[in-house]
């Protein structure tokens, strides 16, 4: 069972449906026991950092996520969910994050449109199973804040300079873009995460690819 953390921030439907298409049982939950009992966890999120942390704390999900990572349960943060993995954010004040990865979240301050919205090409800097087969692939971004000063950057995109696109350490991974909205490459990344987390077998992945 894979747990999608439901803490009242944003669209759980798309990511849950995308993962279900791999034949994985998905539970959208705010229950600490479900989260600690999951084979893998997805932390989605859209909205403001401070509000998201407040919602997580209110349901004691912040401590549960740290505990889950401590137990070795793979965790994937998407968009705001990736930013929450970091140490802190300066979005509307200063807020502490989950601190699972290093980095500070700041507003994109470049002479380009904000939000950074649309498809951009990944440049992979890490050799690992998660990033396998996606270098140069296009993925879909929608965000106004980005992760800086992170020492665990696996992939970037260029938007008037590098933007952290995939960050990770051991079994904690963050994706700034939306893999569930990123066509074929997004599919590959979800498959890589699920395989690495041993939630789907290689055979299952091949079966799903055959159907899609």
């Amino acid at each position: 069972m894979l747990a999608v953390v439901d803490y009242g921030m944003g669209n759980l439907h798309s990511v849950s449906q995308a993962i279900r298409r791999f034949g994985v049982r998905v539970v959208c939950t705010d229950d600490v026991q479900h989260i600690l009992g999951a084979q893998a966890i997805v932390l989605p999120g859209v909205g403001a950092f401070g509000e998201a942390m407040r919602c997580l704390r209110e349901k004691q999900l912040d401590a549960a996520l740290v505990e889950a990572v401590g137990r070795g349960i793979p965790l994937l943060g998407i968009c705001l969910g990736m930013q929450l993995l970091c140490a802190s954010s300066t979005e509307h004040g200063t807020h502490e994050g989950l601190g699972l990865l290093s980095g500070t979240v700041t507003r994109i301050d470049r002479p380009l449109n904000v939000p950074h919205m649309g498809w951009n090409a990944l440049r992979v800097h890490a050799q690992n199973p998660l990033c396998s087969g996606v270098d140069g692939g296009m993925v879909y971004f929608v965000h106004s804040y980005h992760v800086t000063q992170c020492t665990h950057v696996w992939a970037t995109v260029d938007y008037g300079g590098p933007i952290a696109a995939i960050i990770g350490r051991d079994r904690v991974v963050g994706m700034q873009f939306h893999p569930e909205k990123s066509g074929r490459i997004g599919w590959r990344l979800l498959a890589n995460f699920l395989k690495d987390a041993r939630v789907v077998s290689l055979q299952q992945d091949e079966d799903v690819k055959g159907r899609s």
């Binding site: 879909y140 929608v142 909205k181 990123s182």
Partner: peptide, 11 residues
């Protein structure tokens, strides 16, 4: 919208 979201992988 719900049916579309279940099958589409673009925004």
């Amino acid at each position: 919208v719900a049916q579309t979201a279940g099958s589409l992988m673009i925004p």
